[in-house]
Design a protein around this nucleic acid. Structure first.
Lengths: 123, 123
DNA sequence: ACATTTCAACTACAACTGTAGTTTAATTTT
DNA sequence: AAAATTAAACTACAGTTGTAGTTGAAATGT
């Protein structure tokens, strides 16, 4: 299954909260994207067809919810991304962001903490 | 400019080494992809048309080289990726990989080192 | 110079994507 | 119940992408 960029935006919303009616999805999407209603409906339909969403009637209206997990997609996409641009390694990614000053002090601390916790709970 | 996944593979090769002749590109690509020669040629042509590569004759044969920098594309793609999946923050990305045990001990050390260096050379 | 091999250019084509418009069916309002 | 509104389904259409095939031009071997 392949999820396009626009479809991904719909999925992100439904991962946050579901099930959602068409109108609720539209409302959420249009907060950030200037899309026509029908465009959003098309995307929903395509996602159902792809098996990424399921829909069912609730209160006489269709509602949608994800069939694939955020984690599943994130894992797939992350690996592809890392392979494509950083030879599959995290370190160069971090280095890239470091070089471009995309990391705040707080973020650095957060990341270090994550890594240290990880070292502790070593298994 | 938008680079597709397959095009990206071609670019990756040319960033490593350039200029390269068509046959050299083909040779490199087919190490990892089972693509027909013409497919690779099409990709090269499209990349030229997009302005991502330029080509010129060398020794009576065309050779190709990148017009856009790896860093440029990586920056763009990385940000898009991070926004799409991790709310634009690195920490959750690291956490994701940590959770999925995708980080070796050595990598953890490497990343920590990068972060610490960064804290030192603070500006 | 002609045949052969190699390059390069041009053409093809279906699936997927972005982006809706149009038609039909269901629900709600008066 | 007829009219109005809303929801759902169906249709459209050009651009991009993956994946080559075909044709024509140039270089090389004999």
């Amino acid at each position: 299954m392949n999820i396009s960029k626009t479809e991904q935006i719909i999925l992100n919303i439904l991962w946050d909260k579901h099930p959602l009616s068409v109108s609720a999805v539209i409302e959420n999407v249009t907060k950030t994207q200037h899309w026509h209603d029908n465009t959003i409906k098309t995307l929903l339909t395509r996602l159902v067809k792809k098996g990424a969403l399921k829909r069912f009637k609730q209160d006489k209206k269709f509602v949608y919810e994800p069939l694939i997990s955020r984690d599943e997609i994130i894992s797939k996409e992350s690996e592809g991304f890392l392979d494509q641009f950083f030879g599959g390694k995290m370190a160069p990614l971090v280095a890239h962001f470091a070089q471009h000053k995309k990391l705040s002090k707080k973020e650095i601390q957060d990341i270090k903490k994550i890594l240290e916790d990880m070292e502790k709970n070593d298994d």
